[in-house]
Design a protein around this nucleic acid. Sequence first.
DNA 1: GCCGTTTTCGGCCCGACTGTTTTCAGTCG
Length: 563
Amino acid sequence: MPERNASIAAVLDEIADLLDIQGANSFRVRAYRNAARSIGDLGTEVDVLMEGGTALTEIPGIGTDLAKKIVDILHTGTCEFLEQLHSELPAAITQLLKIPALGPRRVRTLYQDLHIENLEQLLQAAQTGQIRGLPGFGEKTEQRILEAVQGRIAMARRHPLAVAARYAEPLAEHLRAVSGVTRVDIAGSYRRMRATVGDIDMVAIAADSTAIMERFVSYPSVTQVISKGPTRSSVLLAPGLQVDLRSLAEDSFGAAMVYFTGSKAHNIAIRRMGQDRGLKINEYGVFREASRIAGATEESVYATIDLPWIPPELRENRGEIEAAQKGTLPKLVHLSDLRGDLHLRGKPGESAAEIVDAARARGLEYVCVVFDERAFGVDAGRVPNALAALNRPASPRVLTGIEVGIDLDGTLDAPDAILRQFDLVIAAVRDQLDLPRTLQTQRVLNALQQAHVAMLAQPVAIDGAESFDVDFSTIVRAAVERGVALEFSMHPRRLAPPDSHLEIARRDGARIVISSEAEEAAELDTLRFSVGFAGRCGFAPAQVLNAHPLSDLGGWLESHRAR
DNA sequence: GCCGTTTTCGGCCCGACTGTTTTCAGTCG
């Protein structure tokens, strides 16, 4: 997310939290949350938009009042209203909302009755049994709070899509084996192909929901049953991943998939469109008065509000509904569009041969086996020989690549003499992710100027790092000028890319490469997430280099090799 | 606080589950 938008969104969210605790009108609170989300979702900094002549009030959810506050925040980093709220409530109190079971009402009670205003005081009150006697609290709630604060319960964190898949897919398969279960599908942000997911939403069609709920809560990897009911249950899996399961009747399946795929903002928008037509849209179907008029399929639900089916990747209420109305939904890149995978990892003669065979089975025309210069050292002379064995008469054609680290000054960790022996050189930021933005940006810009670099990898994820601060627009412009492709991969070894990076890349005409970075054959499966993520950001096949036949790539590869 | 091709006022998505209650508020998604 653009940096300044992120801080505006944070201020608006904090105002929403504080108002909520004060017991303000919930629609007013929601207005702040909607605005925060709206600003956070913009691909361009608001001040840049304003310089370009866009009025803030043109942004959905921003009216004259919030526009003024946003300008205030842009100039001063805060706004008068937030300062006023801070004088009425302690600043740290919003931390309490992050504890499960604590919402605005209970936080207010804790503050008013026990003067609790931060996590330390909350812990002490729970330990001394002061909380159980408060109105609306009891022993169980006190215990939950105690455990949460002590960190025994895994705090909510997001999981890379490919990691979540390793837990969610086997669980779905486990549930499909229950007799009477006809479907189990994963919805939520997983289906929308967000780079990271906070939890997993599953939708099941079952004749008897008790059997599937039993099977669900007794799944071996379940570490905690959060709730269990006849139609909905929630559990925690080993890595702290929450899974919610909803069981419904067959004729509700489409409505349930729309509902649980979200996003929330998309759902609210389509339900409002339903309301305009006198319809009620919920997870069970579309209703006019008491009679159900749709719900078995997603298409039937969208048809009631005169929309075509919208791909899940686009369901964010960021213009996809308007595009659907106008018939201008983009044609998204799809897994079947990929002609090659330019980043397989493996050791010569060992796992690489297996992955190449697996790529062949998937119908890929070409692959590039990439060696890590650290593992390989200066002994690159071995590479061509090792690869000769991989290149067999049948497709795919095997290219050779090398991934090389970028030093702080932007030079590469391997000499030209080695780099030029490979078909493809990929430069990657592997350390010092926390450099200040200007230095990090300059580091990458310098790397783009190095001879032979044809592709820029996403940064390598280090110790759960969540951000990589660069001026991505500048990097994209330089990459376009230099003919360097931007690689996108959802392999967990990479730092998850923010949506805004791909959106900037698409807008500015960068060419991207979608890679699996598979280290073993099974990991080729991560391609579907990477493609889904690119689709989510609106990429069509033409802008994806490896959706083109190898014959189209020759010029690009050769021009970098010859440099 | 936002929004409007019926509205400048009166709406704003809505249902499941838990724990605290004696009929429902609060939280969550």
